[in-house]
Simulated scan of single mutants.
Amino acid sequence: MSLTHEANRSAKVGKPPRRPQSKRPSRKAAETRAGYAFLAPWLLGFIALTAGPMVASLYLAFTDFHPIRGGEWIGVDNFTRLFDDPRFLDSVQVTVTYAVVGTPIKLAAALGVAMLLNNRRRGQGTYRSLFYAPSLIGASVSIAIVWKAMFNDQGIVDDIGDFFGTWQGGWVGDPSKTMPMMILLTVWQFGAPMVIFLAGLKQIPGELYEAADVDGAGPWRKFTRITLPMLSPVLFFNLVLETIHSFQVFASAFIISGGRGGPANSTLFYTLYLYQRGFGQGQLGYAAAMAWLLVIVVGIITLIFFRTSRYWVHYTGEGR
């Protein structure tokens, strides 16, 4: 039956003629293929550089693998050996101390400076840039070298202390001072959380502070009753990120200790010891087990943060 005859027949019964089906692919299918084509480089990179190495390291964690002599399957022996390793326990203690002490001080410094910069004043943009600059360069190898030179014996910190009659004798070689030195380094890099805090402070309605002024509330009461509750989502975000970062510190500890974690294992951070085992001693299976244990611990800590956030994180418009 011809198309013309079908059209005439459809017109007689009051129905529109059927259009011939196109053999071209639909526009939606074409857009889908184009999307996958644009995603392909990222997908290949993710598989080759992230997912693939993760699967390989998970396999290595259950083997006694050496890059030269190969390896054999040993099950969970690597994980059980960890807790019999005194240097591993030292690295856990150093990292936990750094995270528990350094992270709150860094967030407190970031919040304090953000509150100061939240007030309008001349040169405000310059001040923000100056305070943010250490976060751009603080994690580099060059800054770690400078930091080591500053706190070394006869460094600038010793010179300043000697000028005021409190000569220190060098922080780098003193096990009791290396942790404060590392914490000062991370606190000095408070620019990133400071910017996030500053953005959160801008979102707090000024009417709340005006109402508090009418009620006669002081600065501390306004801070605890208005600023902290309204800023709690931002504080939660910064707390999670900075805690994760504190467990990943490596470059500064490697440079300052010369890759040894000394003196007396006082700078033997978890990732530094992992590096020593995996790339210094060739125990890739042991290092992989350490890496996966770190992933599990950080995941548990993050889960705890999210579970407990319901008790202290308050969102605008949230029903109570």
Rank of each mutant, 00 (worst) to 15 (best):
G259A: 13
L272V: 04
M182E: 08
W167H: 14
L294K: 04
V55M: 02
N265P: 01
R260K: 15
A217L: 10
L43Y: 07
E210Q: 12
F38E: 00
A253D: 09
A199M: 13
E318R: 13
A289Q: 10
T97C: 03
M194D: 08
G138C: 01
F247P: 02
V249A: 06
E72M: 01
M150D: 01
I74C: 03
G161V: 10
I137S: 08
K15D: 07
G155C: 12
L293K: 00
P20D: 10
A149Y: 07
V187D: 06
S10G: 10
N8E: 14
L117N: 05
A61E: 00
K202A: 15
Q189W: 04
I183Y: 04
R320S: 09
A144F: 02
F163H: 14
A109W: 06
V297I: 14
F83I: 01
T50F: 04
E72Q: 11
R310V: 08
S129K: 07
R27C: 00
G155N: 03
Q124N: 09
A40I: 01
R120T: 14
Y311Q: 08
T95Y: 05
F46A: 12
L201N: 10
K202I: 10
I226Y: 10
F164K: 12
T308D: 01
A287K: 06
S2W: 11
G282E: 09
S91H: 09
S257Q: 11
A289K: 04
R121Y: 10
L136Q: 08
Q283I: 06
P180M: 10
L107F: 08
T97D: 04
T224E: 00
S135A: 15
G216V: 12
V113F: 11
G125F: 00
R18I: 12
D162C: 05
I160H: 05
L241H: 01
T166D: 13
S2G: 15
H245E: 05
L268I: 05
G112Q: 01
G262S: 02
V297L: 12
A29F: 13
G165D: 12
F237G: 05
L43E: 03
G52S: 02
F269M: 12
V172N: 08
A288F: 07
Q281V: 04
A139G: 09
N118D: 13
A29I: 12
P25H: 06
G206R: 13
K106Y: 04
V295A: 12
P134E: 02
W171M: 13
M115C: 11
G161R: 12
I296P: 09
T302N: 15
T4E: 14
A56M: 06
L239K: 06
K148L: 00
W73K: 03
S309Y: 10
E31I: 07
M179W: 10
K148V: 00
A251Y: 05
V101F: 07
S176V: 11
R120H: 02
R307C: 01
G70V: 07
L228V: 14
L293D: 04
T271K: 05
Q248T: 01
Y270A: 03
L293F: 07
V94G: 03
G317D: 06
T186W: 00
N152H: 11
T308M: 05
D64M: 03
G258Y: 09
E242Q: 11
V249T: 13
M290T: 04
E72A: 06
T186R: 01
S142E: 00
D174P: 10
V172I: 15
D84I: 04
W292L: 07
S2K: 11
E210M: 05
L111K: 02
S257V: 13
V249S: 07
E318I: 03
